[in-house]
Amino acid sequence: MDTDLKDKTVLITGGGSGIGAAAAHYLAEQGAKVAIVGRRQKQLEAVAESCGAFYTMADMADSQQAADAIARIINHFGHLDRLVANAGGHGFSRVDETDDTAWQQSLNGNLNSAFVTARAALPQLLQQRGSIVVISSLAGLFAGPDVAGYTVTKHALIGLTKSMARDYGEYGVRVNAICPGWVCTPMADEEMMQLASRRGWGADIAAGYREVTKNLPLARPAQPEEIAAVISFLLSAQASYITGTTLVVDGGAHIVDLPTLSFSSRF
C-alpha cells in the first residue's frame, strides 16, 4: 500500500505491545520514521530492534515526561508529523469496586495519556499539518460488565477526538478515532484466560476468543495488524477529507441486534 507516509515521523504511545507494536511494524514497512513510547523498557527495546523504531520511555499522562519525550523524538528525527494515541488498558471493575487510586489509574492510562500527549505534540503537528489517530474501543460506544473506568474513559476519547478535529481542522490537522472490538493482544489474552478458567476450559485462550466472537458476523477476533492497517490509512493522505470520525473495526459486532440472537441459524 502506498500511503505517502515515507519519511514521516510517527509517534506511537503504548508502542511496546499489542496494537501499538503492530502499528510500529506496519508503519515502518510503509517507510515511516517510527518513534514508540511506553513505560516497559524491555518491550520497547524488542519492538524497536525488530522494526528499526526509535524508542524512549515516559509516562505520557505526565506533562513534563510527555514534553521531554517529544523533545527527544524531535531531536532524533528533526520533526513530528503524526501521532497515534494508543496507550491504555486500565479500569476493569464496577463503580462500587473502584477506589480513588484505581479511578485515577484509568483516567491517566486511557484518557489523560492521550490528552497530554496530543497537547504536547500539537505545536509540531500544526506546523507539519499533521494527523492524529486516537485508539478508543468498542467500549467507547457500549458498556461491558465490570469495566466502569475503561468504559468511561474510552467514551471520553471519542469526545476528545471530536473536540480536536473541530478546533484544529482549519489549520490542516486531522483527528480521528478507531474503536476496535476484540483483538488478539496480550491484554485480551489475559481476559480470554480468565473466561476460559471460569468456564472450565483450562488455559484454552482460543476457546475464549471463539466464545466472545461467536455472535459476530465475521465470527473471529481481529489480528493487531488489521487495526494497524486502518491506523495507516487514517494517517495517510488517502484519508485527506476524513476528520472527526469514529471508525468502528469490530468484525460487525456493533450491528448485531441482541434480542434476535436466539433466531440465529448458526446455533
Results as ranks from 00 to 15, higher is better:
residue 14 G to L: 09
residue 53 A to P: 06
residue 136 S to T: 07
residue 218 L to S: 12
residue 118 A to K: 01
residue 17 S to T: 14
residue 73 I to P: 03
residue 48 A to S: 15
residue 144 G to S: 08
residue 244 G to S: 10
residue 84 V to R: 00
residue 50 S to Y: 07
residue 192 M to Y: 13
residue 175 V to G: 04
residue 260 T to M: 11
residue 178 I to R: 00
residue 251 G to Q: 07
residue 262 S to G: 14
residue 111 L to I: 02
residue 88 G to S: 08
residue 191 E to S: 15
residue 137 S to R: 02
residue 110 N to E: 01
residue 106 S to F: 00
residue 86 N to E: 04
residue 228 A to L: 09
residue 238 Q to T: 05
residue 232 S to C: 15
residue 120 A to Q: 13
residue 130 G to V: 03
residue 231 I to N: 05
residue 252 G to I: 10
residue 43 Q to I: 08
residue 90 H to G: 06
residue 213 T to N: 14
residue 102 A to E: 15
residue 23 A to W: 00
residue 34 V to A: 04
residue 77 F to Q: 03
residue 60 M to S: 08
residue 137 S to K: 00
residue 62 D to R: 02
residue 204 D to P: 13
residue 229 A to K: 15
residue 121 A to V: 07
residue 261 L to W: 12
residue 59 D to H: 15
residue 256 V to M: 14
residue 247 L to P: 05
residue 131 S to G: 07
residue 77 F to K: 01
residue 119 R to G: 03
residue 29 E to R: 08
residue 96 D to V: 11
residue 139 A to G: 02
residue 65 Q to C: 06
residue 238 Q to S: 11
residue 62 D to Y: 01
residue 219 A to E: 13
residue 47 V to N: 02
residue 236 S to C: 06
residue 81 D to F: 02
residue 196 A to M: 12
residue 97 E to R: 12
residue 195 L to A: 12
residue 138 L to G: 05
residue 65 Q to W: 05
residue 210 R to E: 13
residue 211 E to G: 00
residue 177 A to E: 11
residue 236 S to T: 01
residue 219 A to H: 14
residue 198 R to W: 10
residue 25 H to S: 08
residue 38 G to E: 03
residue 5 L to Q: 00
residue 38 G to C: 08
residue 203 A to E: 15
residue 6 K to F: 06
residue 155 H to F: 10
residue 104 Q to S: 13
residue 139 A to I: 05
residue 212 V to Q: 10
